[in-house]
Design a protein around this nucleic acid. Structure first.
Lengths: 344, 344
DNA sequence: TTAACCAATGAATACGTATGTATTATGGGA
DNA sequence: TCCCATAATACATACGTATTCATTGGTTAA
């Protein structure tokens, strides 16, 4: 029907007032009389008027938009994302909506210039990093962002003396609890499937929890039982094959993520090992599929809903210039059948 | 270090040219000499200059942003979204990024004023609806959007004489294939779990495919074997309980979505029915979990990657004013163990 | 009665970019 | 030599809003 979007001038004209008065009236400024405000708001409603976001943002230098950046693994080209991230994504979307912020989502290569595209271009007031790729590389980028005064927060491992702000799972204690569960069930030769290098500190922290639990149970830590595997079913599968090919005995596997654990179960079963009778398995993340594996996977549940809310809450604090400190989130062990029953 | 974001005027000053020349140089306009352009671009790079998106959008009345709207079911308050939608979301994000568009994501109540917030406010050039809630209600909203000349496309059932533009799965034929698979395996009393009303046309289409396959196999269609269930494990579970409580015999269940089928399997097994020996089960969507249920679920795979790409491609066509027609996407039957082996 | 004051509104302007028009310089053809 | 076409650039302005400052009319206190 109407071709042209109405502007505040149109409304001003119709109401017989000036444009600034319209602007004020629509923002419920106390500077306009109640009578005028009501008249203006009625006209605005009738015309289906909406403030032009771009004009407003240009003028007020604020976007009320957050950017969510997922670092894309160059390897995986198809659209299968880590289900744990998807769950986080859902909770972040809701949380930012609740706070009146729009959410801009983007997949980025780690090689890209992250800041350029978002805050610097006034596209968003702040950035939430969900998957950041390689940690060492990320740190270099962070340093740059920080120098530019960008507002950003990261879902990732909380370390000492870290630049930027992080919210992450208490990997060490969560992994510790998992392993303790295994040792309590009398498992003695527990393999760790996951990258333990500095490039993946969250896995590294889980490895530390693993070591702590073993030592506490009086068991020997055998580094040969640690096999590198990144978060995917394939990597978990292959790592398990490698383990099976080796000469070392093992009676349990800690998969540093559910996908790894799922791949492990598959490999074990294909090679005639029963889970949990021959080999117990635990995972990490509690992705939806974890309760449907056969047997159902004992794993560590991360509270993605709370995590999303905290990420949003804290990035908003940063935007407002308030102080923020990194947050370590406790996780919970979900016990299912993949570890076997307590034999004691 | 620097407090103020540099503007095109700053660059112009440094380069000894005017601001419009900077604008043109950065957009590679043929109106500026190569020499000038290179000088300007070098300065821009050094200053880490980025065009202010808001100013550009205000001026050019274009946002290069798409909005993705998920209609939020008022019932489910937590952040567990339908995994099928999450998969679509991932593919849409990638596709729009590939086309140079930003993606704005929002969960909406069906009661909200969808258009107001996005295109009308110049926040996005077009809208992709992923979950639209109740179809009848949605149609009313669509009519309004259409009248306003909004650009939008919907992932949903393709029907005759539909306003707006839809891209959706070929529900009828896909369900037909599933049921035919069951009848080929000699199942005769097949239940349909899913809402078959006009409020959920995609389920309705699946029901039509179900009917078609039964008739073709010379079987009787018993409406009592259709039980309402919306897409969730709980609803599938409850519908199956209802089925079990009834006096009707059945030897197979078609779950109108994987989540329904998963709930059905759970209910069946809890009540001492073996799957697939006593009751075969098929699902729809091929969510990641489908291959991990016990037994693994035979289901219909939707090509979410292609769907996401088509949605983005076509909304861009609409934005450019090109013609677009609705698209019906073929799906593929994924045969797993939940239907049993061919007995013939 | 008058000065000071407050409430309500209008006028002017800035935000940073993109584009239509005007201007300058340069070169070629007659 | 002069004119015109063309290339390159500058000038002026529009986009729609929000804010600062100025103005108006009416009210209160001295």
């Amino acid at each position: 029907m109407k071709d042209e979007k109405p502007t505040s001038f149109d409304i001003a004209h119709l109401a017989g007032v000036s444009q600034p008065t319209v602007s004020r009236a629509l923002r419920n400024s106390p500077l306009v009389s109640e009578e005028t405000r009501e008249k203006i708001q009625a006209i605005a409603k009738k015309l289906n008027y909406q403030v032009d976001i771009n004009a407003r943002n240009l003028r007020s230098k604020e976007t009320r938009t957050l950017a969510l950046l997922l670092c894309e693994d160059p390897g995986t080209d198809d659209s299968l994302i880590n289900p744990f991230f998807l769950s986080m994504l859902g909770s972040i979307t809701r949380a930012s909506g609740k706070m009146g912020y729009d959410l801009l989502i983007s997949f980025q290569q780690q090689s890209g210039d992250w800041n350029a595209d978002y805050e610097n271009a006034h596209r968003a007031d702040g950035i939430i990093f969900l998957g950041y790729g390689d940690y060492i590389t990320y740190m270099e980028k962070i340093a740059h962002l920080d120098r530019l005064g960008a507002h950003f927060i990261t879902w990732g491992p909380v370390l000492a003396k870290q630049p930027g702000h992080f919210i992450g799972c208490d990997n060490l204690n969560s992994a510790y609890l998992s392993i303790k569960h295994l040792t309590d069930l009398d498992h003695k030769k527990i393999a760790f499937l996951g990258i333990a290098s500095e490039h993946r500190p969250e896995f590294n922290q889980r490895y530390q929890g693993y070591v702590k639990a073993l030592l506490e149970a009086g068991l020997i830590v055998n580094p040969k039982l640690q096999i590198d595997a990144d978060t995917s079913e394939e990597m978990g599968y292959e790592a398990t094959i490698e383990l099976l090919k080796g000469k070392l005995q093992f009676d349990a596997i800690f998969g540093a993520s559910d996908l790894i654990a799922i791949g492990a179960i598959k490999a074990l079963q294909e090679h005639g090992k029963r889970v949990p009778e021959d080999v117990a398995v635990v995972g990490f993340d509690n992705i939806p599929t974890a309760s449907y594996t056969n047997p159902p996977l004992t794993t560590v549940q991360q509270d993605t809903k709370l995590a999303g809310e905290l990420l949003v809450e804290n990035i908003l604090k940063l935007i407002r210039g308030e102080d923020v400190s990194s947050i370590l989130m406790p996780a919970k062990l979900i016990i299912r059948d993949s570890c076997g029953a307590n034999l004691s």
